[in-house]
Design a protein around this nucleic acid. Structure first.
Lengths: 209, 209
DNA sequence: GAATTATCAATAATTTTTTACTGATATCCT
DNA sequence: AGGATATCAGTAAAAAATTATTGATAATTC
């Protein structure tokens, strides 16, 4: 397998979604030009992306087997191994994340929530219990939590993140618009709505895309 | 002003957030090395990014004036001009988006919601009325909606998007994991959780970052 | 007030990512 | 069956983005 770049990694779930839909509709094989039209990626990009993670070659004229592609992308994305996560901060966004269908599809299991609001603690959201911030120490290990999905208010995000890191968490999916500083070896991925919206605004103003 | 690239556009809201925090704490000026440490960007990147959108030069030893930087970033990001939007699909995610604080900060005003569930239509969420899908035609113009924030189920996203485009919408902030095909001149920005999660997984597995 | 130092702007080099090109080949068509 | 064609793999070129380098200068220190 070739080296895979971050932009490529971001594209694989997009290919996967598209391929699953095609298979659903009974399509058996697919070529780079077809995916190119379907997803508005360049043909070359599609070919390179698929080539990088699949062991089987495409065939001239007919392209690639969809089932095999799906397998290979899932394998690359690790969708069969389950990752256990907790949602931290069960406000509007946190609730939405605890109810999000589709996390299952990519091997992400939301096990529970955490909050510091006494009126929430002990409740369930989508069948998952909400624990107190003070239970971090015990629950991370007890439940085998690997990552946290951070959706707290900005001003407490750094503090809460540190507590989870100290409790043994290895990754943070950060929905809070705050840059977290954590020790070496902890993985962070930020979802920044302001950044995304800035891109949209820019496209709107400059009439690109 | 120099040419600004998409990755840079994504970074400006991050600088802004950071600078606002510093100003709050009484700091008056900031240098590239300081922001570099604060945000884990390289010094060179910070310097280039700021240089690209600010008209005033930084001074050796002391750096740049924070207030001026904030002004310039806000100006570049168009935060003073209001963009009117509707949330389409008032499920868990849609509700969260209708309640999200902080959209105001970047000039995004959520005016109303749309859904096709009769039990939701006519209700208010965070003080904003939820209209029926059948009211798209009238409401887009009546309310001056420029963009829609799409949070519907996957299978209807394309259809609903087209209806809004036909009604005169200019941009789509797409939270649905579906590639939308729309006519020339319509701007789309996708928020794809699967892509973001794939990056996190990759960092976790390869122990980078 | 001269020397030192942290920072800057501008330009150059490097790295990363995307796109283009070339020859080969499986499928389709007559 | 044999030629036409769509697609592929592999490599090369181009474009985009990041990082490094260089000389200059404002603030600080002695």
């Amino acid at each position: 397998m070739r080296k895979v770049s971050p932009p490529q990694i971001e594209r694989y779930p997009i290919y996967l979604k598209c391929l699953l839909g095609m298979r659903e509709r009974g399509v058996r094989s697919v070529s780079a030009p077809i995916l190119s039209r379907e997803l508005s990626f360049s043909e070359e990009q599609v070919r390179k992306d698929l080539q990088a993670i699949t062991r089987c070659n495409g065939k001239p004229k007919s392209g690639r087997d969809i089932a095999e592609l799906i397998e290979d992308i899932k394998l690359f994305l690790n969708y069969s191994s389950l990752t256990k996560a907790a949602v931290v901060g069960v406000g509007h966004l946190g609730k939405a994340l605890m109810n999000y269908k589709g996390f299952d599809d990519f091997g992400l299991e939301i096990v529970c929530g955490f909050d510091n609001d006494p009126t929430l603690i002990g409740n369930k959201e989508n069948g998952k219990e909400i624990y107190s911030i003070y239970q971090i120490g015990s629950k991370v290990e007890e439940l085998g939590l690997e990552i946290v999905i951070l959706a707290t208010p900005s001003n407490v995000a750094q503090d809460i993140a540190e507590r989870f890191v100290n409790a043994g968490i290895k990754g943070i999916w950060n929905f809070v618009p705050t840059h977290l500083k954590v020790k070496e070896g902890i993985s962070i991925e930020n979802v920044n709505l302001a950044s995304s919206f800035a891109l949209l605004q820019h496209k709107l103003r400059n009439e690109v895309n």
